[in-house]
Amino acid sequence: MSGGIHADTAPKPVGSYPHARRVGDLLLLSGIGPRIPGSDAIPGNRYDADGRLLHYDIVAQCHSVFANVRAVLEASGARWQDLVDVTVYLTDMAADFAAYNAVWQEYFPDPATAPCRTTLGITALPTPIAIELKCIAATGAGARR
C-alpha cells in the first residue's frame, strides 16, 4: 500500500486525510467536494450578511466537483477514464438529482463506458456544499482504457 497522495491543484482536505491512496492497481479517492482550490469558496453559494447560506447552484457545484476529482486523478497519475466506481452524496436529492444527472451525462455520455454509480441523499456534509463524490479508479494493466 502506498502513502497518501496530496494534489496541490485540488482543495485541501477538511480533515487529516489524503486526497487519495493507491492500493495495488486501485486508486481510492477520499470524499471530494466542489470547493475552489486555494480557497474555501464554494461555487454558486450565496450568503446573507450574517453568513447564512441563502442559495446554492447545484450545476456550478457539479462542474467544480468533477474538476476537483480530475485534479486528484491527474496528481495520482490516473485519468478520468480510469474511474470505475463513484458514490455521490447529495444534500437534497429531490431538488438536485435531475440537474446533477444532466451534468453527469455531459461528463459520461456513454453509459457503456461510464463508471458504476451510486447516489445517496444525505442531510448534511461537513461544509456548506450540496454534493460530494467518493471515487475508485483502476489504473493497472488490466484497467479499462
Rank of each mutant, 00 (worst) to 15 (best):
R70A: 15
M1H: 09
T139V: 14
Q61C: 10
A71N: 11
G140N: 02
L27Y: 08
L27M: 04
Q105F: 09
P13S: 10
D50K: 15
P43E: 01
V86D: 00
C116Y: 10
L53Q: 07
A7D: 01
R21W: 06
T127R: 13
L120N: 13
F97L: 14
H63C: 06
V69Y: 07
L29R: 07
P11T: 07
G51I: 04
R21N: 10
P115F: 00
D85P: 05
Y107K: 11
T127P: 04
R46K: 12
R79I: 04
A78W: 00
A94M: 15
T119P: 03
P126C: 05
H6R: 09
A124F: 14
A49R: 15
W80M: 12
P18Y: 03
L28A: 13
D110M: 03
P115T: 01
I129D: 07
A138I: 07
D82R: 06
S30A: 15
P128C: 03
R21E: 13
G33T: 11
N45T: 08
E106T: 06
A60W: 11
R52W: 15
Q105W: 08
A138V: 05
G140Q: 04
T9E: 12
D50F: 14
G33E: 07
R22W: 09
S76Q: 11
P37A: 03
I32K: 05
A41F: 10
E74R: 12
A71M: 04
L83A: 08
A102G: 12
W104R: 06
Q81V: 12
S2G: 08
P111S: 02
L28E: 09
N45R: 08
A7F: 06
I122L: 13
G31Y: 11
A67E: 14
R21S: 10
I42L: 04
F66T: 07
A94N: 15
N68A: 06
T139R: 06
R117H: 06
D110S: 06
R22G: 09
R35P: 00
V23L: 12
D57R: 07
Y17I: 02
T91M: 03
P11A: 10
C62E: 05
V72E: 07
A102M: 04
L73F: 03
L26F: 15
A94P: 13
C135F: 00
L54E: 11
R144S: 03
T87R: 15
P37D: 03
L28K: 13
A102E: 14
P115Q: 05
T118S: 12
R22S: 11
L54Y: 07
P43R: 00
D8M: 11
G142F: 15
V103G: 05
R22P: 06
L90P: 00
